[in-house]
């Protein structure tokens, strides 16, 4: 799996993590009135875990970093906007640029960075 593809799958995993977290939040149903069936949540968790296993196998170091960052910040990957990390809002050094052969992290907060056109 190329690094680019890996990153795409990693933020798909993050989307799933955020969605699961959202629908399991008791405030969610209370505020929206939308009830999500437990079985559908379990299906989603199974898909999430399948994707996580694939990412762990392909690059254990990055995957474990993602899990560690998620525990610390609530997410493990963030976008770069105007050459700034959108997790800690630090300006990135000019040397930090997107690369096809390497996963790039923020030198300030350590979060995994992604550049989207």
């Amino acid at each position: 799996m190329s690094k680019r593809e890996y990153l795409r799958k990693l933020y798909l995993l993050q989307d799933l993590d955020l969605l699961i977290q959202q629908v399991k939040d008791p405030e969610y149903e209370a505020k929206t009135g939308l009830k999500v069936d437990e079985e559908r949540i379990r299906d989603l968790e199974n898909r999430r875990n399948e994707l996580a296993r694939e990412l762990l196998k392909a690059d254990p170091v990055t995957y474990q970093k993602y899990e560690m960052l998620k525990r610390r910040y609530g997410r493990g990957i963030t976008r770069v906007v105007n050459h700034m990390c959108t997790n800690c809002f630090a300006a990135l050094p000019a040397s930090v640029i997107p690369r096809d052969d390497e996963i790039i992290t923020c030198p300030n907060c350590g979060i995994i960075l992604i550049w989207l056109e």
């Binding site: 969605l19 989603l44 976008r79 992604i114 989207l116």
Partner: peptide, 25 residues
């Protein structure tokens, strides 16, 4: 992905599709 969990069409002609996403600021 959210719709797979169940429609956000809350009934009476109204829907509230929603998501958290990395693409918005």
């Amino acid at each position: 992905q959210r719709e797979v969990l169940g429609s956000t069409g809350i009934g009476k002609g109204i829907a509230i599709p929603h998501s958290r996403s990395i693409v918005v600021d």
